[in-house]
Simulated scan of single mutants.
Amino acid sequence: MTIKLNRPTNAFQGGSYRNELNQNWDMLEKWIDENGTDGLSDFLANNSTIGGEQLSRAKIVNLFDKLDIEKNTSLVNLTGGTTAAEGTNTSRFIKVTPGQIIGVTMNATMVGCYYDFQKQYIGMMQMTEAISEWYTQTVPLGVNYVRVVVIDEHLDSYMLSQQATMPEQYYEHEISMPHFNSSKLLSGSRVVTFGDSITWYDGKIVDGVLYRGYQAYMRQAGASIKNEGLGNLTFAPNTKASSMYEQIVTNQYDFTNFDIVTIAAGTNDVAFNVPLGAVGGRNDTVFDTNTSLGALRATIEYIRINYPRTEIYLFTPLQNETRDMDKHEVIANGIIAIADIYSLPRLDLFRMSGLGKYTFEVYTRDGLHPNNEGFHMIGKRVVRMMESH
């Protein structure tokens, strides 16, 4: 039987408009029944006039979808219509809620227009600077839709969000429907991710490319994410870069507000010749924190002793073609052994990510860091593995 969604009321809307909406809801319910919520954002963008922001209980940080725009057009502020404008893009009609604060990342007070439920022009969006690079306004009564204008150079950084505060990082337009996965581990979970540059990449623009890290797929599964990834990070202190031991233990990181912490590192320990050290015994409490495995054990001890309810997931490092993979395998085995001592779920990405011999050109940007296709493959597997524990 086709799943039934919580449709917004349309009793007061015109017959043809109401019928069009009902047809779209029927199509959407059939899609979810057959495919789940995976790929829902693409479906909405390409097949339906219903925007994802209209779905009851949908979580969307960025309402602006850079893939669903009218290219080389701008809005006429006094009429709400479009006009030709090279290098400028107009969004689709985006559903908003009267009385709700909306914010945009754009250094301008005039960013678009307001419309009613029939998409008839009401007025201009006149924003006020709340903080640097974050402009807000309360949606006026009678307004049901907005359209915004974004120039080409801002497409990969522009956000429109129904919140008063600026998001902590850039988020692409993506739809999370955690209530469809309420029995799953990640639904509603607060997750903090520690790791090296591969963890850091999420939401960053590198060489003109916006990267969606593995965390993007955790968010799609309903988790909220704080990214603590750092480039060149190692497990143990060294003379070349920061270490996770210092980041967490030395600085006494507070995990009070997190349900899950993920730890993904090791490749830079190999690159910087950090001593591997020993796994140690199950009952050991003193560790050589100048070694990779000793620092990892001390880090886990800190979290377990002080925050026993915070779940810890260990990821082994990805294979790459810039490091010694024999040494990678040794450190991966050490991470797995440590996970077993503390009964921690461990995701063996060294052996199960799909990145390996003959696939580096396809799934990495430089033989080391995944490209977006690589992150897509890894992210799906990370979520699947985490949900299976």
Rank of each mutant, 00 (worst) to 15 (best):
E329R: 11
G208S: 03
A85Q: 12
Y158T: 05
G356Y: 06
V192R: 00
L78D: 15
Q100F: 00
G354F: 10
I300V: 12
G229Y: 02
V146G: 01
N372M: 05
P317Q: 10
V104M: 10
G374C: 05
N306A: 04
R297I: 05
Q23H: 14
S16F: 13
K357C: 04
I205S: 09
G356F: 10
E172C: 10
I341V: 09
R351Y: 11
N232K: 14
L44S: 06
R351H: 15
G229R: 04
K357M: 12
S242D: 12
I122E: 12
A271P: 04
D269Y: 02
N22W: 07
M325A: 09
K357G: 03
V279W: 00
D259R: 01
M27P: 03
T267H: 04
M106H: 09
V150Y: 01
G277A: 06
A130N: 14
L349V: 03
E311M: 15
T322L: 15
K119A: 04
E301N: 14
K240M: 13
V149N: 07
P140V: 10
Q319V: 07
R57G: 13
R7A: 07
T90F: 00
A295V: 00
M177G: 02
M385L: 11
Y170S: 08
S388K: 11
E301W: 01
A265P: 03
L21D: 11
G112E: 00
S189L: 06
G334R: 00
F117Y: 13
Y135G: 03
K4Y: 09
P275T: 05
R212I: 01
L75H: 06
E172P: 00
G103P: 01
N257P: 02
N238D: 07
Y214A: 04
A278G: 06
D284S: 10
P317L: 08
R304Q: 15
G195M: 04
N283H: 13
D38S: 15
